[in-house]
Design a protein around this nucleic acid. Sequence first.
RNA 1: CGGGGCGUAGCGCAGCCCGGCAGCGCGCACGGUUCGGGACCGUGAGGUCGGAGGUUCAAAUCCUCUCGCCCCGACCA
Length: 582
Amino acid sequence: MRRTDLFCETLRQSPSDAELAGHQLLLRGGYIQPLAAGIYSLLPLGQRMRQKVEQILREEMDAIGGQEISMPVLHPAELWQETGRWQKIGPELMRLKDRAERDMVLAMTHEEVVTDLLRRQVRSYRQLPVMLYQIQTKLRDEPRARGGLIRVREFTMKDAYSCHATVEDLDAYYPRVYQAYFNVFRRAGIEVTAVESDVGMMGGTMAHEFMFLSEIGEDQLVMCDSCGYSANRQIALFVKGEPEPEEPKALEEVATPNTPTIATLARLLEIPESRTAKAAFFMAGDRLIFAVIRGDMEVNETKLANAVGTLELRPARPEDLQAAGIVAGYASPIGVEGVTVVVDELVARSPNLVAGANRPGYHLLNTNVGRDYEADIVTDIAAAYEGAGCVRCGNPVRMVRGIEVGNTFKLGTEYSHALGATCLDENGEAQDIIMASYGIGVGRLIGSIAQECRDEKGLIWPVTIAPYHVYLVGLDLDDEAVRSAAETLYAQLQAQGLEVLYDDRKERAGVKFNDADLLGIPLRLTISRRALAAGAAELKLRTEPESRKAPLEEAAAQARNEVARLREEILARVRPEELAVR
RNA sequence: CGGGGCGUAGCGCAGCCCGGCAGCGCGCACGGUUCGGGACCGUGAGGUCGGAGGUUCAAAUCCUCUCGCCCCGACCA
């Protein structure tokens, strides 16, 4: 491709509404163009990268028996009503009506449709297993799109669905997808960390997230350097330690003016925060959830939501508390009616905690679960924190941030049961089909790589996904001899099977070099009067500061070898991976 | 949805308080000089000042409403 023909305008300054470095570079390099918040066009360079990533995805999915299909983006609402997600999922699901006023859905994922396919097509266990995948547009009305391609409202996702006659078959297959996922990310040039995760709106029994570790990530991960335990903070378990055993003492009210927080309370009473019980309030629909946790810990909302069996948990507002007669800052479940009390298991086994007296300015000493109040649910609802004890080995864990670039879910029979997708087993009995779903966000992956693979001059793409292999800089092109040598080299490079972007513009050297760096093409070749005088082209890796001379007649072959070497370097990272489990 | 910020030429910004000709840099077009890491000189094109309403002799500027974009939080895969 000649630069004079390429639809690509590079910017010297990045648009002011771009925050992340990777996003800025994608904009400056002319890879993407925003249309609205979280909605982007891919320009030719961006589209080429998407195709590179998609090709890797196809190869890896095909290698584990995947068959590519294409499912609609527009769905009738009935299908989503059948699985209950029409009701369960909030405004994130895009809904619309067609001209006949029928409710429709813009797909955010495709479990419903693929399960509908199964119930129409599959009758016997002999037709299973089957792995179907597609690379398709997804729509999610994110409350807050941000970070360029990292978090968008419309995006391309590779989603795959495996369907099995037995749980054992799924269990045997799942690790193959897991391995294929690692292969995909490594071939695309990045390392990810797989962690066990919450099943969230997908439902099901086991899930992994493939996290690209990055400071800009929005997910928090718990990692143990000692034993390798890793989990999303949403579900991370940890060791809470044993409270000192103590005989229950008599309840006692004390005046504690102006101590609405645990910190002020502990200071006033001169006790550690761990000797207090903290109340936190959430709404599950119109049900008020009264969560009780030890004063030195935080509530993990995902654990709490799972405990009460809801997808929609939101912090309670002052008016919610007022309606229930709860005094914020001085609340405890003692004597409070009409709410769901969820007590962290650590609180349940900690004697004599200080808790609110349910009137302003007073607390109760020596509260004990079971004696002073009853819990509707006792379970683990505490959030892991930096330095908490690892659940597996007890050593302190570390909190890191990550971007979820892929996920895998064992769905079980959640969808097949709801939609009646069954097959007959060996005994001629109808069984719900066992399913799993697997996603990888293509744009998010590219955005993550852009954020990671760059320097102060611009992007530095892994050769496996770079839009072009070689950036051919032609200088002094008004000199006929140089121009003809450049044209010849351009043709030779292509004849070597290389993808070449040939900068034949009437620009000064600095402009072309800077553009080459900005665009992040792995290999740069320069041909100029000076180079020609030496009978050579100059060859430079994007990652190296200096160029070297390559005799003209060898230049194309050397370039091919360099690209092959870069590719092998990346592919050498592909290796077997053990399933991460708790 | 809560808090904060910003909408002026393709991009980056000034002008707004204190109302009075719509500006600067980059980019773009043309001419010339340059020519190996974002050159220089000259000429030029390009703007319903996000939109609507109001105040005023007069609004980019003041007031009201509204739309959009960004950041933090809430939420979410």
